[in-house]
Design a protein around this nucleic acid. Structure first.
Lengths: 335, 335
DNA sequence: CTCCGTGATCAAAACGTTTTAGGCCTGAAT
DNA sequence: ATTCAGGCCTAAAACGTTTTGATCACGGAG
């Protein structure tokens, strides 16, 4: 209740409200003696700036919106942690929206962001359709795409090369002696899944294999551990185990691993297994999981820095489409 | 840039700004014909309410602050997902703060929340000292404690009974035939760790054992998989393996499991193992992990509902200290 | 025919800050 | 002496809503 306003601070320090505002926002503009007096008043009264009033008048807030597809997935959690860290360092607050892969929910998130007049939006789009995102852009709200390459030149994006990642994984499996590989994936409408497939095919071709023969796709509807185990059961039931399995993410791979071990299939002796994302649990599973590591935390951090640079230096800002490279992590499951 | 204000909407609909505001906030107060006219204008102009202006005048915003200890821990992620879900259903935005267990960072989060004039705060306190929280309360910002019992009667809290959880785990281990049990935990200054220990001791006493003999504590500095593995290595190196191990969370347990299996210790034949939290990965590990399940998602959801009820119905609201009960989940690691 | 109640709308004030244009000094340059 | 510049500060307007009290038109009751 006891909301102390800038006026009361001004009164106690014997200056005008404008001067208090100056102390708060450009302290160098005000004489040292009065600055100290004002700062004391602020402390004594326990004044905290009213963000709404501030952003109403100033025309922009100190918040950014973050919309992710699934906050329960460690990949996105790490991204979110990076965002929160970078934003908080600069005094920005993060408004979190979880779309659960639902376009409608994503749209609602963007509306909330618009109402809050966020300074900018970070988004991992839930689909390939970026119309809503363009709309934000036209409204003057800066947007940085996360884990999705930008479609327009006047926009920043931060992503990891999934084609390279797919190649790394499959090249490694080939080097380990595999001939027949199964790619366990989510829906191929998901860009990441599709790109990793392309990379896989390229690696096969480069090694002199025919992808149509050497690679089998096994798409599951979800990308969690349960689906991975179901995929394992299916492979085993049909009696056509490949030499190696490449899973589109680590959750699938962990489920696959469990399904295989339960059926008595030894990893890696009978079958090599590699995942994607290198989540923490990949190294903690009984047979530690080879995987493709992505700089997740960094993804969130760099995206945030790009966004805030765009907001603070609209003139000097150069739009960038950053593409990180993934990294192969070899562990027991492919040895 | 194209910021459409309520005035322009009013002009186009041929009414006063006040009427537009009424259409937005209490549509029942305005005649149907004009309401429709205004709604059309809103749609045509693409008007979105300016949240800052709104909350400046109305005195409260439509945001809640959420400060968690470690957004990377699946436990907190689930809680956050529950919060986001419940808040978003009611049109509230969630401002996320990650304290990383750091008191200073937590304090900074609370300051940001105060600046944003959030409607209320949900917090899993990073320590036992709730002074800063009380301070918020005195400022008129409602607070609900998450996973921490309230210390004052005029405050809501939502937690899970950790004493019961500790008892459940240890009773189960005893029933499985264990005599000597090791409790692998984080720092015992963490309330959750300490409470689970109390529960463990109670279960032992109730079964006629002397806790000082039957139970050994092994506190680690961190509560992640790495620490769990280190704990396993320590037990093995010292050559004093117990009959059963109770880990204070699943991350520790997964690391422990890996360390044991690598050393050739069979689970559960040689040693029973139980974790805490029942994170998704507990069931996906090679030897699926028995655990104590907590209603995490629900924790976040109920906390949010409590908070928003307190905000919207300050008079009729009854403060509640809700204590959920945990649940024993038996899997392979204790069979 | 007047009075009053009711429902719908409006005009204007208020919320707490930032920003703009200017005012008042002091001291230096003319 | 006068002017000028620069440093410091102030008064007041503005941001886009919500809310309050007032106004107005319309019927129905007296």
């Amino acid at each position: 209740m006891s909301s102390v306003s800038i006026k009361e601070v001004a009164a106690r320090a014997g200056v005008s409200p404008g001067t208090v505002s100056n102390v708060l926002n450009r302290p160098e503009k005000v004489a040292e003696s009065t600055r100290i007096r004002v700062e004391e008043a602020v402390r004594d009264l326990g004044f905290v700036r009213h963000g709404s009033a501030s952003s109403l008048r100033a025309g922009h807030s100190r918040t950014v919106g973050l919309s992710v597809i699934d906050i329960g997935n460690p990949f996105f959690t790490d991204v979110a942690a990076g965002v929160e860290e970078a934003a908080s360092e600069r005094g920005y607050a993060v408004i979190l929206g979880n779309s659960s892969g639902d376009r409608l929910k994503e749209e609602r998130n963007l509306l909330v962001f618009a109402e809050q007049r966020v300074r900018g939006v970070l988004i991992t789009p839930a689909g390939a359709d970026l119309a809503k995102v363009d709309q934000l852009k036209d409204r003057g709200i800066n947007v940085v795409l996360v884990d999705h390459p930008a479609t327009r030149a006047d926009q920043c994006s931060v992503a990891v090369n999934d084609v390279t990642g797919g190649s790394l994984a499959v090249s490694h499996l080939l080097a380990a002696g595999a001939d027949r590989i199964t790619y366990v994936t989510g829906p191929l409408t998901i860009r990441q899944c599709a790109d990793r497939l392309i990379g896989a095919e390229r690696a096969l071709t480069a090694a002199g294999h025919d992808p149509r023969e050497a690679l089998e796709e096994l798409p599951m509807s979800a990308m969690n551990a349960r689906s991975g185990q179901q995929a394992a059961e299916k492979l085993i039931a049909e009696g056509r185990l490949p030499d190696a399995v490449f899973c589109a993410n680590d959750l699938l791979a962990l489920g696959m691993l469990r399904g295989l071990l339960q059926a008595g299939v030894r990893v890696p002796q009978d079958l090599s297994l590699i995942g994607y994302d290198d989540i923490d649990f990949a190294s903690a599973s009984a047979v530690s999981l080879s995987s493709i590591r992505q700089p997740t935390h960094r993804l969130g951090r760099v995206a945030t820095e790009l966004l805030l640079d765009e907001c603070d230096n609209p003139d000097s800002h150069a739009h960038q489409q950053i593409m990180f490279q993934p990294e192969l992590i070899v562990r027991e499951s492919t040895r």
